[in-house]
Nucleic acid binder design. Structure first.
Lengths: 233, 233
DNA sequence: GGTGAAATTTGCGCTTGCTCAAACAATCTG
DNA sequence: CAGATTGTTTGAGCAAGCGCAAATTTCACC
């Protein structure tokens, strides 16, 4: 069985405080794989057989309601764990994970989590720190949905996206993967129509440049102002 | 130092799989205290010196925005841990906790978490399971705020409250602690006016009976139908 | 290079639910 | 018990943003 090279993960904060031998051991239980764009890595409600680490690409975490509405919970970037139902005592995935671009992931069997966690407490602690951060982000999302207007929420979503995955160009900051207006709407709790209108208005004001599945932020500072105070201030 | 009696916690799911000696050891590090109604147990942003177990009463977990908006993240019931920032690698509390009624809590120093968790893995696992459940609930809340109308959200909130803390009377099911329209609004992302109007309309239809800081649910089944499908179905 | 699918833009009308305002009811305090 | 405080109800007007519809643009694939 071809094993995964330690160098792929040795720099990650998740594995800080772990020696080379530890990393090799951890990787010995994992399998790497490629996932092509728009393919699901796991499906909501399915048995949580594995948990994953994203090596390269971007992954969309989506919840679908019984009525067919979709809500994007978050995007996962390189170096992040996802699908860690096992660490939280769950047996099924609460959401689906879809590759936003071609991705490389490594997977561990969920059943190995308890042993891994007890053998490498630093790894477990880092994982739970990640969970804590996600819980807090999710709660912040609730606060935003409860208290802010749509324009402000779209601005916040865009700021978050460019902070996490912004690629600087000489024109401005670009989101590093293709994203549709519909998907931005599913992150902010609105409709693609309102997202389109808002982005168009911002383009007129010179804050962003829009094209198909792309948003280029030209004036991050002004967008930040909208995210923090709303546009009427 | 007066120690806490083991019988207070021995029946809790959180401490399942632990022997009497273990329980005594765990309790040896804890301090019990009374908190009177409306007093804060800890404040948002403060140093997370302790984590807590609620023995009796109900606790409100509240996030306040820089603009002064309040959002109620959840209510904690007897037997639940809260303020467990330490288990998630945080050094400050992300929200405030306020006693909704007179409460009895026990507190452990946050610094003891790592030792406790490694000495009693079953306790740690139960705690992380709780965290997982909360993360999922919070994500569900995001989905509701993103996709449902106000009436449906209020119905859901009420259903959740009576499920968690419902006290059956011969008239119907009553929420076990005083709760204002304002607080219901802060749980659902709306205003107290809309909550008041909605509850009044439901009272007219015979679904609930309203009085100051009280909601008595007379027809849980019909309320459930609104929570699931909206009222127009 | 033509065709079809997917994504985006934009207009219009309307509904939900918010803001503002005022009156009213219940509870607490001294 | 008087007065103050806190919580609740209800009305009226208004605006944010949704639903619907249609046109347009962009891209992928033959």
């Amino acid at each position: 069985m071809s094993s995964i090279d330690r160098s792929l993960i040795s720099g990650m904060p998740l594995f800080a405080d772990l020696g080379d031998a530890d990393l090799d051991q951890i990787l010995a239980e994992a399998r790497a794989s490629r996932v092509e764009k728009e393919r699901a890595i796991f499906e909501q409600e399915a048995e949580a057989e594995s948990f994953f680490l994203l090596l390269d690409g971007h992954v969309r975490v989506v919840r679908t309601t019984p009525e067919g509405n979709q809500v994007i919970a978050r995007y996962i970037g390189p170096g992040e764990l996802f699908g860690i139902a096992a660490a939280l005592g769950r047996t099924t995935y609460p959401a689906s994970a879809v590759a936003a671009v071609d991705c490389v992931v490594i997977a561990w069997p969920s059943a190995h989590w308890p042993a891994l966690a007890s053998r490498y407490p630093a790894f477990a602690a880092n994982t739970y720190k990640l969970v804590g951060a996600r819980l807090q982000e999710t709660q912040e999302h609730v606060v935003e949905l409860s208290t802010e207007q749509v324009e402000q929420r779209i601005a916040r979503t865009l700021m978050r996206l460019i902070q996490q995955t912004g690629r600087k160009t000489d024109e401005g900051v670009l989101i590093d993967f293709p994203i549709t207006r519909q998907q931005i709407a599913e992150m902010t709790g609105t409709t693609l129509h309102t997202v389109s209108r808002t982005l168009s208005a911002w383009e007129t004001r010179g804050l962003v440049r829009n094209s198909r599945q792309k948003v280029l932020v030209v004036e991050p500072h002004q967008l930040f102002a909208i995210a923090e105070h709303g546009s009427g201030h």
